[in-house]
Design a protein around this nucleic acid. Structure first.
Lengths: 234, 234
DNA sequence: TTGTTACATTTGTCCTACAAATAGAATTAA
DNA sequence: TTAATTCTATTTGTAGGACAAATGTAACAA
């Protein structure tokens, strides 16, 4: 099969075929695949092409290869590819806004799980985080401090996937705050003047009072700058 | 550089190096990269290895290659990799539960945007969808019908990323409902007995009444079976 | 039975060669 | 001079062969 160049390359097709092979044969993590030469013969392409396709699947975590043992299917870490691709420099404004929307939706929606899982012990841990941050003062809060609180919330909610997802998205928000500082600055100041700023200590109060709706409203306000950016920038 | 086998292969390293190259040189979509031979010489590896690495990035959508023109950076579709990896057969129960949690959080959190963007026209469109489904009867609702309503909600919320994300996750829920039918069946029956089932028509009522909190509570109930599975299965 | 050695298989890497596409230069036509 | 055409050099896509390194397996020894 010595075809020329085209929009879809042989590697693309072989990648697709291998994924099909896994699905059709109902292979699950631990099962082994044909080796490179066998695929090469099965699909009528060079070993090179097969290797390119396998290399992609290996990167995604769908398979692992080991000498002599061959290729085995593995349970993939779902966000491998997402992480590699999420370079703020490469994202359009539209995409950045959508990520902020995702963040807002998740922070509010996760409250369902937060309030279902909350315990005295967790409240204490949150209190420690908050009091440390109160001591620092709101204006001196580093991006890490901001992150620590919210990460703790996700942790309590008990969903590793969402936690991981947020970790990956986080650099985008950091980048945005810096890159669009001239926008965020006045927005924050205006909110400050109106005394409309919700801090972590406020959020914690709602948690202690078991007031889920209150918490969700407060979180909405806490993330107001993002919301403003999303709807009003440009 | 003719080294032996190792946990991290040359292709892994070269992939990393190329990503570094893009970041360090602040390349943005449209900018072009060195060609395969140049990378090969820069990094001291064979063209084969470079091609494997490039093939991965091409799959993610980070770059595009064209004869003679070489390689250019592109804005990647963020969920390319995620989509390829999300085969329900390969997922552990833990992961499936986490996806359900993600779904619940998003459906509730997205209400913020739904109620911010809702218009008369959109309400009408929702009404058409719902009345068609009422005619069919709740017990004859296909999975597509279920999907159509929720997709419309996401569409109104106006976040393409979340919309796409849900499209990708959807097969997991389909798979689960079938695969764990023996669990979902009695749960649904119990909810039915208690008359505690929330249908799309109920959700729409809250939208018409501009009752966001009511909608969120109702959505929580609407997704109750997933919630039950998440917390009580196994 | 257990430990060691040798062998065969499979992945990882390198190299060379050529086909196909095409950007850009050279050439020709208007 | 400008526009259309042809040529050429470059670059990606694909093939196939070679060898190194790792390692499961079988043969062998204690």
């Amino acid at each position: 099969m010595k075809t020329g160049l085209s929009t879809t390359t042989l590697a693309d097709q072989v990648e697709e075929k291998i994924i099909e092979y896994i699905k059709e044969n109902h292979l699950v993590p631990g099962d082994s695949l044909p080796n490179e030469m066998q695929f090469s013969e099965m699909l009528g392409t060079s070993r090179n092409v097969v290797r390119e396709a396998l290399s992609r699947l290996r990167m995604l975590g769908l398979i692992q290869s080991r000498t002599k043992r061959g290729i085995v299917v593995t349970e993939p870490p779902l966000l491998n590819g997402f992480k590699k691709v999420l370079d703020p420099n490469l994202l359009s404004i539209k995409t950045i806004k959508e990520m902020m929307g995702m963040r807002i939706a998740l922070e509010i929606g996760i409250a369902e799980f937060l309030f279902a899982n909350i315990t005295e012990k967790k409240i204490e841990e949150l209190e420690q985080i908050v009091s440390r941050q109160q001591a620092i003062g709101i204006n001196n809060l580093s991006v890490e401090d901001e992150m620590i609180f919210h990460t703790k919330i996700y942790e309590i909610a008990g969903n590793d996937f969402i936690l991981q997802f947020n970790r990956i998205m986080h650099p985008v928000f950091e980048f945005s705050k810096q890159n669009y500082e001239s926008y965020f600055q006045p927005v924050n100041e205006k909110l400050n003047e109106k005394g409309d700023i919700i801090q972590h200590t406020d959020l914690l109060r709602f948690i202690k009072n078991s007031d889920k709706e209150g918490y969700q409203k407060a979180m909405q306000k806490h993330l107001k700058p993002y919301w403003e950016f999303l709807y009003n920038y440009d």
